[in-house]
Simulated scan of single mutants.
Amino acid sequence: MAESQVNNCSEPADPDVAELEVQNGLLLVLDPGVGLLPETLSERPVTATASCIAVGTLHGAEGSTNVRMAEEAAPSDDELHLRWAGEIHTEQSLCVMTVELERILSVPCRGAVQVSIYSNDSEEPDSIWIEWQKSAP
């Protein structure tokens, strides 16, 4: 994991992509100022509240996970499949974070955001695409 991507929150080489070993096998997509985590993490690959999405990943001991956050949809190929789609609330930004609340990726946005989560495996994906779009007022 590149230090610039997580520890000091500076811009990585490609600010929309991160590759990291996810120690708990779980990433959060939320605005850290208002996001409320799901009470339980079911057997589903993605669980959400109105302000937070919990995304299961490949456990860090098994290897690294590639995460992309983009305004465009995932490429239509046989590798990535839609796992969740919905809307979450933000006040300042939409972030991908570890459960230790280390910021991985972030985009400024305010209000309702449409989010779609794509991954290459239903249980322990090592490739995740997070599509986001600001909701219409």
Rank of each mutant, 00 (worst) to 15 (best):
L41D: 09
E72H: 13
D121N: 04
Q114P: 02
I53Q: 06
L30T: 14
E131D: 11
C9R: 13
M69K: 01
P32I: 07
L36Q: 05
M69D: 04
A70I: 10
P15D: 04
P15F: 07
G111E: 08
V99P: 15
Y118R: 01
A61N: 08
L28P: 10
V67W: 12
G86C: 00
N66F: 15
L101P: 05
A50L: 01
D126W: 01
H81S: 11
E11Q: 15
Q92D: 14
N7P: 13
P137D: 01
E102H: 14
S42M: 03
E3Y: 15
L82H: 05
E100T: 09
S135F: 03
E79S: 07
W84E: 09
G35R: 10
S51D: 01
Q5D: 14
S76A: 11
D31H: 03
G56K: 10
V6G: 15
V46S: 01
V115S: 02
G35V: 04
G86E: 04
T98H: 00
S135N: 08
N66W: 06
P75N: 04
E62R: 08
Q92W: 06
P45D: 10
M97T: 09
R44F: 11
D126S: 04
E72P: 00
E72Q: 05
L41V: 07
V96K: 13
P38S: 10
I128P: 12
H59R: 12
P38Q: 11
T49G: 03
S51A: 06
Q5N: 14
I88G: 10
